[in-house]
């Protein structure tokens, strides 16, 4: 594998506020790279810098071995595809008009555009009328059309900023199937998401907190390295719930009406068993996220 994205000591400042602080990482070609963090952690800011939409205050960025230099972003922009949180389709234009416009922005040859458009619509399995106005489309279809628009010029890497926000679960699942197919075709995917089940699909995950990169590894390694002790699932058996002494736990997190916890000492389990059903579980990515990203900020 060779490197597709190389970020070195990236800083982004807005006045006195530092949105991204000394972030460095690489993304390999053909990888699904997940970028996770709470709201305001600096995910969108970083993705915007990588796509040439925002200027870095400090640091260096390389995309496919080309350095991103302020004022000369065109070369990088021609190599990347970008799909933002809002899908950025023109609601008052038809699907065809949106795609025509996107092709004109990329200076695409007409024949090449028509071929790519046909291939991409086949790829997402869309065989409906292209004259439909975007505002009349269901959100899931809008999302897939927006993905096609970002792929029209056949970029080597696609940046997806929360592509499934507000999309129904079935459509989300379908969208991730498309992403996996893209990776199989050799594309590199850089994706931010709030859905931990989606993040499980990533080859590696970077976790951001308050503008800093706090962890970077595969989902399996992140789980293993975050929890050194056994994690338990606790379901209350009494009403009202009698909460145990928090000093018994290293980790104690609400999980719906239940709790996920790590005991300081496993011998204390018997104290808690009076009021809770207790099961051993493997940590999920959500547990990792809560522990690393949200737990530390409390």
């Amino acid at each position: 594998m060779s490197t597709m994205v190389d970020v070195r000591h990236l800083f982004v400042r807005f006045g006195d506020f530092t949105a991204v602080r000394d972030v460095s990482f690489t993304v390999e070609k053909g990888e699904i790279f997940g970028f996770l963090g709470a709201n305001g952690a600096g995910k969108t800011t970083t993705i915007r810098v990588l796509c040439g939409l925002l200027l870095a205050s400090e640091g260096r960025v390389f995309i496919d071995n080309e350095e991103l230099i302020a004022g000369h972003e065109s070369l990088i922009k021609s190599k990347v595809g970008y799909m933002s949180q809002h899908f950025t389709l023109y609601d008052d234009l038809s699907i065809r008009e949106n795609m025509d416009f996107a092709a004109s922005l990329r200076h695409m040859n007409h024949a090449e555009y028509l071929k790519n458009r046909r291939d991409l619509l086949d790829f997402i399995g869309f065989n409906e009328d292209l004259t439909k106005v975007v505002r009349d489309l269901p959100t899931g279809i809008k999302q897939e059309i927006a993905l096609c628009v970002s792929l029209l010029h056949q970029p080597k890497i696609v940046f997806l900023d929360e592509p499934t926000a507000g999309v129904a679960p079935v459509a989300r699942h379908r969208f991730w199937e498309l992403i996996k197919k893209l990776v199989a075709q050799g594309k590199t995917i850089f994706v931010t998401t709030h859905y931990m089940d989606e993040a499980e699909n990533c080859g590696r995950i970077a976790l951001m907190r308050s503008g800093e990169l706090i962890a970077l590894d595969s989902p399996a390694n992140l789980k293993q390295n975050t929890f050194h002790k056994q994690l338990y699932h606790l379901s209350p058996i009494t009403t009202p719930v009698i909460l145990p002494d928090r000093n018994l736990f290293d980790i104690w997190e609400p999980y719906g009406q239940n709790y996920h916890a790590v005991f300081k000492n496993d011998t204390d389990i018997s104290i808690v068993r009076k009021h809770f059903n207790i099961q051993k579980i493997s940590p999920s990515l959500e547990d990792v996220f809560i522990q690393l990203v949200e737990g530390q900020t409390r």
Binding site: C51, G52, L53, E73, S74, L75, K77, S78, V80, Y82, S84, Q85, H86, T88, L89, Y90, D91, A102, L105, R106, H107, V149
Partner: peptide, 14 residues
Amino acid sequence: ERGTIETLISAPIS
């Protein structure tokens, strides 16, 4: 306002 400005400025145009 609609965020479509991102479509414009993410394209390699001047």
